[in-house]
Amino acid sequence: MHVHRVGTDALLVEVDTVAQAEALHAEVLRRVEAGRLTAVDVVPAARTVLLDELADRERHAREIPTWSVPEVGEASGPVVEIPVRYDGPDVGDVAAAWGVDVADVARLHQEPTYRVAFGGFAPGFGYLTGLPPDRSVPRRASPRTEVPAGSVALAGEFTGVYPRASPGGWQIVGTAVDVTLWDVARTPPALLVPGARVRFREVR
């Protein structure tokens, strides 16, 4: 674990794996909940957790490396279920990358219970972890200029759902049905909040 000072009042805590980053983020949230850490923003990412406008920064900079951070196990609590039509243009490429039949992509994508590791690409976008290591896929060689809202896609060790139309380079396997990923009138506005669990269910 490495603690970087950022500007005058933030820390960037760096670890080695996305699993460690998820565990660290969960530990930060426990400490926020318990009133032992106060930050305006806590931003998890692939290998880091940013603590922005952190009160008592220097004390935390000293203490964080001594934290004992439990692994994120099989999380309990509610699961967000996302109905999906597996009609994406890249199902064939994903099947090829996985070495399976096109017909198996939907079943294999639905098997894991995923976890929202972090967001950040667009409001309401969540990077979901839980794909087995042998189910990684490369990004598309050439990104699309417009990926439709609701696209269910994969890249690297992650899967996710585009909350709004945007450019994107992920492999699209399907379309989320009847879910609103982002709504500023809702609390919280994002359906997929870091730490939440997610399952995909095929609909036709």
Binding site: D41, V43, D52, G119, A190
Partner: peptide, 9 residues
Amino acid sequence: RPGYANLGI
């Protein structure tokens, strides 16, 4: 609107 960076804002 501070406090929404974890949601991408």
